[in-house]
C-alpha cells in the first residue's frame, strides 16, 4: 500500500464541480497552501468549503474564493484584518456563508468522521445561531441539535507522513487536520517530509493511515503570512 503521489496536481486530481471540500488550518497555521493552489489550477467549481477561516490576502483559500470556485463556505470566523476577498464577495451576495461556532464546527466534523449523524450541544442556546434548530432538554438544561458534516475531499497539512498515510502534525498547525481526515471520502495530505515505514513510533501517530488516501511531499511549503505581506496574488496556472 503506497499513498504517496508525486505532485500537488496529482494529489488534487478528481476533485469535481459541486464537491464539498474540507480545508485544514487556523489562519495560516496548518493551511495547505500548495494543495489549495493546485485546486485553483485544477479549476473545480461550485465547491462547498468547510474551513475555520475564509482566507487572507489573495493566496491560499482566498485565491480559491477569488477565482470564483467556492459557492458556499462553512466557517467560524470569516473576518480577519487581512481578509479582503471574502468580505467583498459576501457583501455582493456572491458567496454563501454558514456561520458555525468553532467548537461546533470541530465536533460536527468529528461526528461526520465517527459515524454519528447528529449530537446535542449547549453552544448557541438562546442565541440567533440556534434559530430553526431542534432544542432538547437533558437533566434540566437546554441543548441544540447539530448535524454532522461529511465531505467528498479533505485537504490537510502535516509535518511528517509515511506511505501508509500515518500523519504527525506540527504544533498548533494540527488544529482541524485530524478530524477533517476522518470526515472525508478522499483525504489528501501535504507533508513536509515522507519517512520510511517504521520511522514513526506507532505511539506518536496522530492520524492513523486508514483516514488518509493521498500524500504529497511539499518539503518547503510557503509561509502564507509572507505571501500576504508581499501582496502576492495567486491566479493559477492554466492547465
Amino acid at each position: 500500500m503506497n499513498k504517496i503521489v508525486n505532485s500537488a496536481k496529482e494529489a488534487v486530481a478528481g476533485i469535481f464541480d459541486g464537491a464539498t471540500v474540507m480545508i485544514s488550518g487556523f489562519g495560516e497555521a496548518g493551511s495547505p497552501v500548495e494543495l489549495i493552489h493546485a485546486l485553483v489550477d485544477q479549476g473545480a467549481k461550485n465547491l462547498t468549503v468547510v474551513s475555520n477561516n475564509a482566507g487572507s490576502g489573495h493566496v491560499g483559500l482566498a485565491a480559491l474564493i477569488e477565482n470564483r470556485q467556492v459557492k458556499k463556505i462553512l466557517c467560524s470566523f470569516p473576518r480577519t484584518a487581512i481578509s479582503v476577498v471574502f468580505p467583498e464577495l459576501y457583501r455582493a451576495g456572491e458567496i454563501e456563508l454558514e456561520l458555525v461556532p468553532q467548537g461546533t464546527l470541530a465536533e460536527r466534523i468529528r461526528a461526520g468522521g465517527a459515524g454519528v449523524p447528529a449530537f446535542y450541544t449547549p453552544t448557541t442556546v438562546n442565541t440567533p445561531l440556534a434559530e430553526g434548530k431542534e432544542i432538547r432538554e437533558f437533566d434540566g438544561k437546554q441543548y441544540v441539535m447539530e448535524k454532522a458534516i461529511q465531505a467528498d475531499f479533505a485537504l490537510v497539512k502535516c509535518a511528517t507522513a509515511d506511505k501508509y498515510g500515518n500523519l504527525i502534525y506540527n504544533k498548533t498547525a494540527r488544529n482541524f487536520g485530524p478530524v477533517m481526515c476522518m470526515a472525508a471520502k478522499t483525504t489528501i495530505a501535504q507533508t513536509k517530509e515522507v519517512v520510511e515505514l517504521g520511522s514513526i513510533n506507532p505511539e506518536h501517530v496522530i492520524t492513523p493511515g486508514i483516514f488518509v488516501n493521498r500524500v504529497v511531499e511539499i518539503s518547503n511549503p510557503a509561509d502564507e503570512s509572507k505571501l500576504v505581506a508581499e501582496n502576492v496574488k495567486y491566479h493559477g496556472i492554466k492547465q
Partner: peptide
Amino acid sequence: PNDIPAVGGAMDLVAG
C-alpha cells in the same frame, strides 16, 4: 448587516 458575521469560539466558551 454590513458587518461580516464572525463568532469564533466565543459561544462554546461561555457555554462550557
